[in-house]
């Protein structure tokens, strides 16, 4: 197990991500955050707080569950438990900032894009991830990346958020059994 970022380093990462998003979306007009369950939701919440504290802008935040859009349902024998999607604003004409913890194969993001498109027609969708670990299986890239980490497929990235896991940190372990 190897520590990649501790609480202090993560603080800087979050602040840099917030600054980059602000810079690209001048004034944050018509912007909204959408966090992908589970940890993307807490990361989106942190960004929302930063926008408010440091830049004085308050933007809506929604929660997306991508279970019903997964591409492995057709080959899985047991469907995962569904948690609800909670997006109480219209996505039409919005600049959606999609937030997830780790970008890996890109399949989760593909599902999330379809899920958002089923809710309406956003103006843009931008992707913000805390970690990009490579090994994409689909042509998907992030607009904002907290940390790029070179990994092998055997390794596993653990993103922890205080509100859910009790601490803020990122570490890497080598415990994945490859099929």
């Amino acid at each position: 197990m190897k520590l990649i970022a501790d609480e202090n380093q993560l603080k800087w990462i979050y602040e840099r991500l917030a600054a980059e998003i602000i810079e690209r979306n001048k004034g944050m007009e018509n912007c909204a955050l959408v966090g992908i369950r589970t940890r993307g939701v807490y990361i989106a919440e942190k960004l929302k707080d930063l926008f408010k504290e440091k830049y004085g802008v308050d933007i809506p935040k929604g929660i997306l569950d991508i279970t019903l859009y997964r591409d492995d349902l057709s080959i899985s024998t047991h469907y995962p438990e569904l948690k609800s999607t909670e997006i109480d604003f219209s996505v039409d004409d919005k600049n959606i900032i999609l937030v997830d913890d780790v970008l890996y194969t890109g399949r989760t993001v593909r599902a999330a894009l379809d899920a958002i498109m089923d809710l309406g027609r956003p103006k843009t969708i931008q992707l913000c991830v805390l970690v990009d670990r490579g090994h994409r299986e689909l042509p998907i890239q992030a607009d904002y990346v907290g940390k790029r980490i070179q990994t092998s497929k055997k390794e596993r990235i653990h993103v922890k958020v205080k509100e859910y896991d009790g601490k803020d940190e990122i570490y890497i372990s080598e415990n994945v059994k490859l099929k």
């Binding site: 569950d65 859009y69 609800s84 089923d118």
Partner: peptide, 14 residues
């Protein structure tokens, strides 16, 4: 969790 789908404009998931 499924109820929300029935309140959408496009009431369908794949």
């Amino acid at each position: 969790s499924f109820k929300e789908i029935n309140e959408r404009v496009i009431k369908k998931v794949p």
